[in-house]
Simulated assay, not measured.
Amino acid sequence: MRDVLFLPFADGMELAVAADGSAAVGDKPGDVVSVPVDVVAYFSARVALMELLSVGAEARVVVLQNFIADDRWEALCRGVRRTCRELGIDLPITGSTESNFSTVQSALGVTAIGTVANERKRIGITPEEAKFAVIGRPLVGSAVLSHPEWVAPLSLFVELLASPSVYELVPIGSKGIYYEWMQLSAANGRQGRACACPLPLFASGGPATSFLISYDRAAEGALRKRAGRLFFPLFAER
């Protein structure tokens, strides 16, 4: 249920941990998708931090596992800082680099760690009468770079995260819209409900280029206006 690990931390508080991994995307000879490493870090940090923030947690630190090269460290940090800047947060960055052996393909791990008060967790809080939508299109690989107009901006994610009309937000990962819909449904005690959407339900969402929301039906007009053509309704079977 959701890609976030919760651990007891203090009275009424929990640690929240989210992670993302990337491989064969970067600037090495064996990479399948060629892209600067700061862009790789930007999108990996995007996934981990969206996961963390979407459950109501406050991000505290980002941890990098750099399997690319020691001389890429600053570029990786630059990508993470760009993600943080677009999310309106400022975080310390730590991590480790594989510097003993060279690799022919890029690989990167990003872990985001935060804290969340029990009463602020945004899991399983969608009421029965809620409506649903996907914001952005699920994209993966080179399509992420060639179709930036369909990638949900982090500024929009932050805005909807703060909206009292939005109940839950779920970043869409490599398992696609339907998988995340099933996770959201299960968290709210409604397992096995089918859905329909103008977007492909089983296509990889790559680096969370889109996200699923549950929302107050009275706010649909305002949400559609704000998201524009990035708003795709998702219809749940009752």
Rank of each mutant, 00 (worst) to 15 (best):
L5T: 15
V33D: 05
G221P: 07
A219M: 05
N118K: 15
G56F: 07
A162W: 00
L91N: 05
V61D: 02
A117R: 15
L64H: 11
A57W: 09
R82N: 03
D11K: 14
A162E: 15
V116M: 10
L160H: 02
P29T: 05
G95H: 03
F232Y: 15
G12Y: 06
A186K: 14
E51I: 04
P29G: 06
L156I: 01
D11Q: 14
K131M: 12
E180N: 06
L64C: 10
N118I: 12
C197V: 09
G88L: 11
L160R: 00
P207N: 11
N66P: 11
K131L: 12
A48T: 02
A208C: 14
P127H: 04
T94P: 01
P138M: 06
S185H: 01
V25Q: 09
Y215F: 15
V55H: 06
N66A: 10
I172C: 08
A218I: 03
Y178K: 14
V110D: 03
A18G: 00
G79D: 01
R224E: 06
P92W: 01
G95E: 09
G21P: 02
V17L: 14
V166P: 04
F43Q: 10
F9Q: 13
R190W: 12
V80W: 04
G30Y: 00
S102T: 13
S99R: 13
R217C: 09
G192A: 06
L52H: 02
L7Q: 09
I172N: 05
G136D: 08
D70R: 13
W181V: 14
P207I: 08
S22N: 02
F157I: 13
V151H: 07
A57Q: 07
M182L: 13
R120W: 07
I123R: 15
L64M: 11
V4F: 07
L201T: 03
G79L: 05
A152T: 00
M182P: 00
G114W: 06
V140C: 08
E58V: 13
V104E: 12
S142G: 03
G192P: 03
W73K: 11
E119N: 10
F202P: 00
A59F: 08
L223F: 08
I93S: 08
D20C: 07
K121I: 15
L91F: 05
L199V: 10
I135G: 01
R217W: 05
I93C: 06
C84T: 12
G79I: 08
Q191Y: 08
I125M: 10
K28G: 04
I93T: 07
R2A: 09
L212M: 03
R85M: 06
D70H: 10
N118C: 12
C84N: 01
L156W: 02
G21D: 10
P92H: 00
A59M: 07
I177P: 09
A162H: 09
A222F: 01
L49H: 13
T97Q: 02
A57Y: 07
A23H: 11
T209Q: 11
D27W: 03
L53S: 03
L223G: 06
H147Q: 15
G109Y: 02
F6C: 01
M50A: 04
S22A: 12
G88D: 05
P127F: 02
T94F: 09
F211M: 05
V140L: 03
P8W: 07
L76K: 04
A59N: 06
L108A: 00
H147F: 15
L199P: 11
T111N: 00
A57M: 08
D70C: 08
F43D: 05
G205T: 04
I68G: 12
I89A: 00
A69L: 04
S174K: 05
R120D: 13
S214E: 10
